[in-house]
């Protein structure tokens, strides 16, 4: 029984640690989908106010037909107000 002791202590510790929620993050843990609302005018592409979350709190896919002529949306972190945080790394999605 002794040979199982360390393993079971580790397992119980892991389960106990899961009781605590950690919210700190230095890199993005959750990204959401944001649709660019000024399409096809790309001049506002760097302004977060011209983006809106897709359905189901940004979990629905972006509706972007193929092509790379114009900005269609971004996959980015939420800045806390429902707008994309464009100061962090994000993915640009384009369309024709």
């Amino acid at each position: 029984m002794k040979k199982y002791l360390l393993g079971f202590i580790a397992l119980v510790t892991a389960i106990t640690l899961n009781s605590f929620t950690v919210k700190t993050s230095k890199h993005p843990t959750i990204t959401k989908n944001f649709t660019y609302t000024a399409y096809p005018n790309d001049s506002h592409a760097s302004d977060p106010n011209y983006y809106t979350l897709t359905g189901h709190d940004g979990t629905d896919d972006l509706d972007c037909p193929d092509g790379n002529s114009h900005r269609c949306g971004v996959i980015a972190q939420d800045d806390g107000t429902g707008l994309p945080d464009l100061t962090q790394a994000f993915t640009i999605v384009t369309r024709n």
Binding site: L17, V22, T24, S25, K26, H27, A89
Partner: peptide, 17 residues
């Protein structure tokens, strides 16, 4: 990739890359 979402769990997500 230009975007690197962390798929790690819990306290490990607080580490830098």
């Amino acid at each position: 990739s230009s975007s690197l979402p962390c798929t790690c769990g819990g306290i490990i997500s607080s580490l830098s890359w």
